[in-house]
Design a protein around this nucleic acid. Structure first.
Length: 275
DNA sequence: TTCCAGGTGCATA
DNA sequence: TATGCACATGGA
């Protein structure tokens, strides 16, 4: 990835592995919005405005280093795509989502977002996340920060319901209480298996949501979230109807430490080219 | 109107 | 351990 850092902005000079539409619209993140041709991304208490240009992409932010990490700009996605392309059924998905990068998202936001995501539409997940920020987040001037864990603890089930969280409101209240009792920094030192076991004990987190939190919040790439779309991909490719647990096992065995990347190209392609 | 959405919790066998 | 159902609610 070729990029340069300046005062209050990052310039991505090589767009072969960076497409802001692919990155944000591929279903991995719910905390952004589009304004004309530009995107605004919110992460925890930080903000960036992304301006796609003809030959480059400009990321305007007061937190340059944070967003270099957030957009994973020091990882070679060309090499990742080359390895994944050794598997036939990856070709079309890699071509379609060639500019995808896996974001390094804020942990709390990832927990909340993916608990809300269960059996839900992306559009409505985005709406509920936006409302949580607007109703309970600190005013940062031109935007609202995502609420701290202390603030989240004060939100009731009824309030989450009013923001559109539906039956997941009770999960959120319980999960946030659990998270407040855990040393989240310490969890980052656990291996993926241990961490998943811990996550599965939290209300509202099942195997799929746990995998998403591991991938997008903890940057663990040896996981393959199976949802309604990736399950369709599996059925297309292998022509059978295994349980999701079995699908997950087989795919992680196939992709190893690139599972999380593979999953994202496949998800984006399937969701946008449903046939 | 009906089915679906980045599924999970819980009861039952 | 595996299966089936209920769960809120807006989108398509």
């Amino acid at each position: 990835m070729i990029y340069t850092k300046e005062n209050n902005r990052i310039i991505v000079n090589d767009l072969s592995d960076f497409n802001i539409e692919h990155i944000l619209e591929c279903g991995q993140v719910f905390t952004y919005y589009k304004e004309n041709n530009e995107y605004v991304v919110l992460s925890a208490d930080k903000c960036a405005r992304i301006k796609p240009m003809q030959d480059c992409c400009i990321i305007e932010t007061e937190h340059v280093d944070y967003f270099v990490n957030y957009f994973d700009l020091n990882t070679d996605y060309g090499a990742i795509k080359a390895k994944l392309a050794q598997i036939d059924f990856m070709h079309e998905a890699i071509r379609f989502g060639s500019g995808i990068r896996i974001l390094k998202q804020d942990l709390i936001e990832t927990f909340v977002g993916f608990i809300i995501s269960a059996n839900n539409h992306i559009k409505r997940i985005k709406y509920t996340m936006k409302m949580i920020r607007e109703q309970f987040g600190q005013n940062m001037g031109t935007y609202q920060a995502f609420p701290s864990i202390e603030k989240l603890l004060t939100i009731t089930k009824e309030q989450f319901s009013e923001l559109g969280a539906g039956y997941r409101s009770a999960y959120l209240v319980s999960a946030i209480k659990s998270l407040s009792e855990i040393d989240l920094n310490a969890t980052k030192n656990l291996d993926t298996e241990q961490l998943k076991k811990l996550l599965l004990q939290i209300m509202g987190i099942g195997p799929k949501v746990a995998d998403c939190i591991l991938l997008f919040g903890y940057s663990r790439f040896n996981v393959f979230p199976i949802d309604t779309w990736t399950s369709k991909v599996y059925k297309d490719v292998f022509n059978n109807d295994n349980s999701r647990i079995k699908m997950r096992e087989e795919l992680v065995l196939m992709f190893n430490d690139l599972s999380g990347y593979a999953q994202q190209y496949l998800f984006y392609n399937k969701r946008n080219n449903k046939a």
